[in-house]
Simulated assay, not measured.
Amino acid sequence: MSGRRGRDKYHTHVEPKLLLIEAWARDGLTEEQTAAKLGVAYSTFRTYKDKYPALLAALKRGQEVADVEVENALFKRAVGYQYDEVTRESEKAIDPETGQIVTVMVETKRVTKEVQPETAAAIFWLKNRRPDKWRDKQEIGHSGSVEVNNPLQGLTTDELKKLIRDG
């Protein structure tokens, strides 16, 4: 009986909200928070993810979109970008269809602004995308041999102790 209730709850509480679930994932809600918003237990929600591919797909799509948006924003901060700042002011105009006076917003000024690259974003990007070249710790290999001239080599423990005592 409980299996039937669970299936019914998926079809009544979850399936109709797949698009909303995708949006919640995009907005950064955890699966626990999503389950709570849907009115199902988190353990049940996890079962639904395994049982219903449409739910898993909605979660993945939402998370993917959010990840891409953040990656794009980080990249823009790392390399700098330009944007247009637009100023609009209200003006009175006559609506051609009704002949009445209406208020409309009219662009009065447009200025292209530039945001300089941000060093921290560039470093973060490079360390994660090109760790072979940008990690803090560089691995340096060595091949061959190292010759060490040790004048104490070959002495016994007793001979070394005598040298220490006699100083």
Rank of each mutant, 00 (worst) to 15 (best):
Thr112Ile: 12
Val86Phe: 02
Glu64Lys: 14
Val79Ala: 01
Arg61Glu: 04
Arg5Val: 08
Glu114Thr: 14
Leu55Gly: 09
Arg110Lys: 07
Val65Asp: 13
Leu29Gln: 14
Phe124Ile: 07
Tyr81His: 06
Gly99Ala: 01
Asn128Gly: 12
Glu107Leu: 00
Lys161Pro: 08
Lys76Ala: 15
Thr34Ser: 15
Gly80Val: 07
Glu159Gln: 15
Tyr10His: 12
Glu147Leu: 05
Pro96Gly: 11
Lys92Glu: 14
Thr87Ala: 01
Glu85Gln: 08
Gly6Ala: 10
Ser90Leu: 03
Tyr81Cys: 02
Lys137Tyr: 07
Val102Asn: 11
Gln33Phe: 03
Glu89Ala: 03
Thr12Arg: 03
Pro53Ala: 11
Asp166His: 02
Tyr48Lys: 01
Ser2Met: 04
Gly154Glu: 00
Ile94Gln: 14
Ala25Asn: 03
Tyr52Pro: 00
Phe75Cys: 12
Trp24Lys: 01
Thr12His: 00
Lys161Ser: 07
Ala121Val: 10
Asp50Gly: 11
Lys37Thr: 01
Gln153Cys: 11
Leu152Cys: 06
Leu55Cys: 12
Pro117Asn: 02
Ala120Gly: 07
Gly141Val: 05
Thr44Phe: 07
Ser43Thr: 15
Ala121Ser: 15
Glu107Gln: 02
Pro96Gln: 10
Arg61Leu: 09
Arg61Trp: 03
Ala35Gly: 03
Lys161Met: 14
His11Asn: 10
Pro16Gln: 10
Leu55Arg: 05
Ser2Lys: 08
Ile140Glu: 15
Glu69Asn: 09
Arg165Lys: 11
Thr112Trp: 05
Arg110Cys: 02
Lys37Ser: 11
Gly62Met: 09
Leu29Val: 02
Ala93Gly: 08
Met105Cys: 00
Leu152Asn: 15
Gly3Met: 11
Ser143Asn: 07
Ala35Val: 04
Val146Ser: 04
Gly167Leu: 09
Arg5His: 14
Glu85Gly: 00
Asp8Asn: 15
Glu15Arg: 08
Gln63Ala: 10
Ala54Cys: 01
Arg61Pro: 06
Ser90Asn: 05
Leu18Ile: 06
His13Phe: 01
Arg7Pro: 00
Glu97Thr: 12
Glu114His: 09
Tyr48Glu: 02
Lys161Gly: 03
Lys9Tyr: 13
Arg4Lys: 09
Arg7Glu: 13
Asp67Val: 06
Val115Tyr: 06
Arg165Met: 13
Gly141Trp: 02
Ile101Tyr: 05
Asp158Trp: 04
Asn149Lys: 15
Leu126Val: 11
Ala23Asn: 07
Glu64Met: 13
Val148Tyr: 03
Gln153Arg: 10
Asp27Glu: 13
Thr156Pro: 06
Leu55Ile: 05
Gln33Asn: 03
Ser2Arg: 08
Lys60Trp: 09
Val111Met: 06
Gly144Lys: 11
Ser143Met: 08
Leu126Cys: 04
Lys113Tyr: 01
Pro151Cys: 04
Val104Leu: 11
Pro151His: 07
Thr34Cys: 15
Leu155Lys: 09
Arg165Cys: 04
Arg110Asn: 04
Gly28Pro: 12
Ala36Val: 04
Gln33Tyr: 02
Arg4Gly: 05
Asp50Val: 03
Val40Gln: 11
Val70Pro: 00
Asp136Ala: 12
Tyr48Ile: 02
Lys161Val: 12
Lys162Ala: 09
Gly167Ser: 07
His142Glu: 07
Asp50Arg: 08
Lys37Leu: 12
Asp84Ala: 10
Lys37Asn: 10
Glu114Lys: 02
Gln33Gly: 05
Val111Cys: 04
